[in-house]
């Protein structure tokens, strides 16, 4: 009888705290192992690129994971390294890889006319 209560409590902990731990644990693991930079795309009035500045080392391949959590499509362009993701639909995510071979600061930007303030949707890539 005592045991039954303990099992139930255990299952309850699993269903609540366990679920949270599993969700965030898995996401952390994924970020750590599968790509180096996570970028969130939103129109400027809803938060813009997040982060606005990305810093990566020179000469190593970068796996860039872009999540569009907005209600409109966005795009991603990094002209200095010929990177272009033409359209990331609302609510979807995409991954792209490139190798920055020179140091410096480079512009990245949204390539889809997403809002009145679309032109402000830019960010900075710092290659060290």
């Amino acid at each position: 009888m005592k045991q039954r209560e303990t099992i139930a409590l255990g299952l309850m902990a699993l269903a609540t705290v366990g679920t949270l731990a599993a969700i965030f644990g898995y996401e952390r693991y994924r970020r750590a192992t599968q790509f180096d930079v996570v970028l969130i795309a939103r129109a400027p009035e809803y938060g813009n690129w997040d982060p606005r500045t990305i810093t990566v080392p020179r000469g190593q391949p970068v796996r860039l994971h872009i999540r569009n959590i907005d209600t409109v499509s966005h795009g991603f362009g990094l002209p200095a390294f010929d990177v272009a993701v033409r359209e990331i639909e609302a609510g979807t995510a995409t991954t792209t890889t490139f190798t920055p071979d020179r140091a410096g600061e480079f512009l990245f930007l949204c390539t889809v006319w997403c809002s009145e303030r679309h032109l402000e949707m830019t960010g900075k890539l710092v290659v060290q």
Binding site: A8, T19, I23, N68, I69, D70, G91, T92
Partner: peptide, 30 residues
């Protein structure tokens, strides 16, 4: 029905996280 309730607690935990952190993603994809 406790087993079923616990299962749905699990489901609603996920739903809560998804509705909180899903941000402004398109409704149909949340």
């Amino acid at each position: 029905p406790l087993a079923l309730i616990l299962f749905n607690t699990f489901m609603f935990m996920i739903i809560l996280v998804a509705t909180l952190l899903g941000g402004f993603s398109a409704g149909n994809y949340n």
